[in-house]
């Protein structure tokens, strides 16, 4: 199926979204919540584009818009630019001190009205939900959206330490604004109001994964060996290789 994005003729398959097709053709569409494998969130709305179908024009979220034959897409028009600026302003009010959002605001020359700004606000979450999805993919389902309206946030049930959480930190890794705090300290990891014990490498003594995450890995591999960190595993492997050469010479 053929379509045009910013004048460039693109080839796409039935069912693909505009975002996917644009990415494949190296066309940049601004986005925060789009991530391969996590399609369909459509929470940030930065990915707005204009679609012209025959004589009809409309503005759609490219990350969830399934492509159609012969549509003509414009990534940025004056109107879209204005809408993106508004969205960024709202994001700025939500997370006023977040460096990623501030960078975006700078790029788009957006400033939020002073009277609504709370300079002491330490909120970093923009409620995109990528972390919730990542947790779901891990099979742990420890976090989800809670509350409604201005109280909406991502958390564990009742903000308690979740027994399902394995402390892998994937949620923090996928977060586009780095809003999730992971504190590693002396063999402990703190995340989502829970403290985890880290696994200690049986050779070098360094801490490298939470006990729960390591256990999940072992279960998947049917492995019950003593824990060894990747650095030591590499050393053992290199040592074996060294031995086989030391014997030849």
């Amino acid at each position: 199926m053929k379509l045009k994005i910013d004048g460039i003729i693109c080839e796409g398959r039935e069912g693909e979204t505009l975002m996917e097709v644009a990415k494949r053709h190296g066309i940049h569409i601004p986005s925060l919540c789009y991530r391969k494998g996590f399609e369909g969130l459509a929470r940030c709305r930065l990915c707005l584009v204009e679609v012209k179908e025959g004589s009809r024009r409309r503005i759609v979220s490219s990350c969830v818009y399934p492509i159609k034959e012969n549509i003509e897409v414009t990534v940025t028009t004056d109107e879209i630019q204005r809408m993106r600026k508004n969205i960024i302003m709202l994001l700025l009010l939500k997370a006023p001190n977040n460096s990623y959002i501030n960078k975006l605001a700078e790029e788009y020359k957006v400033a939020a009205p002073e009277r609504y700004m709370n300079p002491l606000d330490d909120e970093n979450c923009i409620l995109c939900g990528l972390c919730v999805k990542a947790c779901e993919k891990m099979g742990t389902n420890a976090i989800s959206f809670v509350n409604r309206g201005i109280y909406k946030k991502v958390s564990t049930p009742y903000d308690d330490a979740s027994k399902d959480c394995i402390g892998c930190g994937a949620c923090a890794e996928v977060c586009p604004t780095n809003a999730i705090l992971v504190e590693d300290n002396e063999g402990k990891r703190k995340i989502w109001n829970r403290e985890f014990n880290m696994v200690k490498c049986s050779l070098c003594g360094s801490y490298f994964a939470t006990e729960e995450a390591y256990k999940l890995m072992q279960e998947k591999l049917n492995d019950n060996e003593e824990p060894i960190c990747n650095e030591c595993r590499k050393k053992i492997a290199a040592d074996k290789l060294k031995e086989s050469f030391a014997n030849i010479y």
């Binding site: 892998c168 930190g169 994937a170 824990p227």
Partner: peptide, 9 residues
């Protein structure tokens, strides 16, 4: 998603 399972595996 950066879960690091592969690193320990």
């Amino acid at each position: 998603i950066g879960c690091k399972m592969c690193v320990s595996a």
